[in-house]
Write a protein that binds this DNA or RNA. Structure first.
Lengths: 157, 157
DNA sequence: TATTGTTATACTCTATAACTATA
DNA sequence: TATAGTTATAGAGTATAACAATA
C-alpha cells in the first residue's frame, strides 16, 4: 500500500504546493470542473461548448461569415469548418451564398437553430447557476469582471 | 469584402453576446491567454504546463507514487506515464523501486530536477507577474480565492 | 480480488500548410 | 496579390480498456 508515502504526503499537506498560488494552474482546474459539468448538464447528444458558442454567435449575428466567427471565437478559420458542418447537419443553420462576394458563405440560423439555442442557453444557465450556487451575486460579478480583465490584457498584446 | 456583414456585426457590438455573461466561456478564454503566455515565456524547449506541474509536485513530495501524483493532478494514471518519461529523459527524476511494495515506483527528484524546477518556477512567476501587472494585489488575491472556490465546489461532487 | 504501472487505442480540440475560387 | 472556405495532416492532452506483476 506504500503507506509511508501516502502518510508523508498527508503530513506535508498543511503547507500548500507552489501550484496553488499560480493563476494558470487554478484557472485550468476551475475550467475543467465547469467544462465537465457543462457536458454532463447537456447530456449525450447535447452541443459541445465550442459548437454552442458558434451557434450563439450565429443567432446573435445572422449572416456572419466563418472568418468573422473564427476571429470572434479566437480560433483558426479551418477549425470552424467541422463546427459549422455539425450545426448544418443538425439543421441549425444554412450556408448561404452572398451575391456581392462569391467567396463568402453567410451563416444564417434556421428557426430550428434558434429554438435549440434558446433551449440550450437555458440549460447552460441552469448548470452555471447550480455550480456557482455557493457564490454571492457580488462574488460572481467580481469573478466575471476579473476574468474579462485577463482577456483584455491578453488581447492587447 | 462582405462589408455589409462586418458592418452589422460592429453595430450590434454594443449589446454583448450571451457568452460574455457565462463563466465557462470567460474561464476558457482567460485560461487560453495565460496558457499561451506560459508557453511563450518558457520557450521552445521549456517544460509544458503539465510536465511542470508534475515536477513541482515531485519536488514538493519526493517519493510520491505515480498514482498519487495522478490523483493530485486530476488526471488518469495512464496519462502520467509519458509525463514521467519526459522528466526521467531530462534527468529530472528517477523511478525508484520500493522494497515494501514492489508494484510501486517512487518518484525521486534529482539535483538537476530541483535546479530546473527552481529556474522554471521563477520564470513562471515572472510570466504571471507580467501578465497580471494591471491587477492590484487585492484583485489577485480575490481572483485566486474565487477560482479555488470553484475547485472546492467541483471536487465536492 | 484489488492496485500499480504500463500499453494500445481513440477522441477532442487546435494549428499549419496548401489548395480553389474568387476578389 | 489577398481573402474565404476547405482539406489534409499533425500534435497536444486526455480517457478507456486491458494486461502483467504484485499485494
Amino acid at each position: 500500500m506504500a503507506k509511508q508515502t501516502i502518510q508523508r504526503v498527508a503530513d506535508f499537506d498543511l503547507e500548500s504546493s507552489d501550484l496553488e498560488e499560480l493563476f494558470g494552474y487554478n484557472l485550468k482546474r476551475a475550467y475543467i470542473i465547469v467544462q465537465n459539468d457543462f457536458r454532463e448538464a447537456l447530456g449525450q447528444d447535447g452541443l459541445s461548448a465550442r459548437v454552442f458558442s458558434a451557434l450563439s454567435l450565429t443567432v446573435k449575428y445572422p449572416n456572419i461569415t466563418q472568418s468573422e466567427l473564427a476571429r470572434m471565437m479566437g480560433i483558426e478559420r479551418s477549425g470552424l469548418v467541422a463546427i459549422v458542418d455539425e450545426l448544418e447537419g443538425r439543421g441549425c443553420l444554412s450556408r448561404v451564398q452572398v451575391p456581392t462576394d462569391r467567396r463568402v458563405q453567410a451563416l444564417v440560423p434556421t428557426d430550428n437553430g434558434r429554438r435549440l439555442y434558446q433551449e440550450t442557453i437555458a440549460a447552460v444557465r441552469a448548470h452555471e447557476d447550480r455550480l456557482f450556487s455557493d457564490m454571492t451575486e457580488s462574488e460572481k460579478t467580481t469573478l466575471l469582471a476579473l476574468l474579462k480583465k485577463i482577456r483584455q490584457k491578453g488581447e492587447q498584446e
